[in-house]
Design a protein around this nucleic acid. Structure first.
Lengths: 208, 208
DNA sequence: ATTATCTATAGATCTATAGATAATGC
DNA sequence: ATTATCTATAGATCTATAGATAATGC
């Protein structure tokens, strides 16, 4: 029970397919109800597999949840990783915003899963945040701060800038249900949001 | 069972105190776990009352939750209501941001309760959003759009502007756990955030 | 007398496992 | 032979109620 993470055991085709079915169902269920609110029954129903069969593939509810989170977090930072120190400052940041908006468009459930987890204290991702997210966050913030300090961007707090980019872009996924009532259909809202954010940050970042 | 909302029955001092204890405990528990994830046991523990006693004051888990949401939503829009058409456009919007940041500072649990509810589909507040929030949202957006169209603000999509103010300000409450790791202690983060948002929106809104 | 609280428990829901059976890969 | 799935169920947790008892307000 100590070292069970050494399991690159080749997965059979069935294994692979069913694990994917479960992950997808779990994403639906956990992003809608959070960890505590979700049940294996719901995941079983959504995946089309029986409850005991699901526990044949995973060691339990928490195992499913943690596996799902890890899988998702692995690609969550890609848009920020791609921020290029050697590029044009404003162009780089606007491109980063576009990539984040694309994440929102393609992976709204993942965004909501992460949001719920953090809102509820984030005990299962805190390690990940400290270990993986913070270093990248600080590194890229330093790049942006460098641009700002050297006058290639307006004077700005880079950490706060990144925070506001996260909040504005992820909001379109997380508060989808509210925005559908207040602003209209999803695709259109995202399109308008993208244009708006580009204008907003372009004006705010332009030096002088 | 039809018209039980006619209950302005004067509450005894004990009634009032215990209902408040329960509301406060429920805010803790529901904002941390969402509706499905919360249990009466947790609320009982947090309030110091017994479980059956809690059900003496409320008709059940859902009754507690809905009462809490309604209570909270009643004041949630106050900052927006105060936006004054006859004031200075940029000053009014920056003051609105300050009020929202103050809500974040004073009522982070309420913000997280609302966020979790919306992320999870918002079935229990959709009516409220359509009936109470949307009209005010549209009215104030029209005011701002008027300012923008008449050149007193930069050209801007007022609905999107309000959306981005909500997302940026509420983010400090909702993603508190993450920001504590990435940015540092809460009070300081809020202070920096307030200054940052003022600069950001001031630059973005200035005409010309 | 009325209001508030407690003990005890019914009945539903949930996670997880045991053990049998069916399907698949050599 | 090994992998995958099913039936049945144990044991824990949860919401809610019944019915008795204690506290409070006239």
């Amino acid at each position: 029970m100590a070292d069970e993470n050494t399991e690159p055991k080749k997965l059979s085709r069935i294994q692979q397919r069913n694990r994917e079915l479960i992950m997808n169902a779990a994403l639906d269920v956990f992003s809608q109800h959070g960890f505590r609110g979700a049940t294996l029954d719901q995941i079983a129903d959504a995946s089309g597999l029986s409850k005991p069969n699901i526990l044949y593939y995973f060691n339990g509810k928490e195992d499913i949840y943690v596996t799902l989170l890890n899988q998702m977090l692995a690609s969550w930072l890609d848009p920020l990783t791609a921020l290029d120190e050697t590029g044009d400052p404003i162009g780089e940041i606007l491109a980063y915003i576009d990539r984040k908006m694309e994440m929102t468009r393609l992976f709204p459930r993942e965004s909501r899963l992460f949001a719920t987890e953090i809102i509820q204290g984030g005990s299962r991702v805190m390690d990940h945040i400290a270990t993986d997210i913070k270093p990248l966050f600080d590194e890229k913030a330093a790049v942006i701060q460098g641009w700002s300090d050297s006058g290639r961007l307006a004077p700005i707090d880079a950490h706060q800038l990144l925070t506001s980019i996260w909040s504005t872009t992820q909001h379109y996924a997380d508060f989808d249900a509210q925005l559908a009532v207040l602003l209209g259909p999803r695709e259109q809202v995202l399109e308008n949001g993208k244009a708006y954010l580009n204008t907003l940050f372009e004006k705010a970042l332009r030096p002088d």
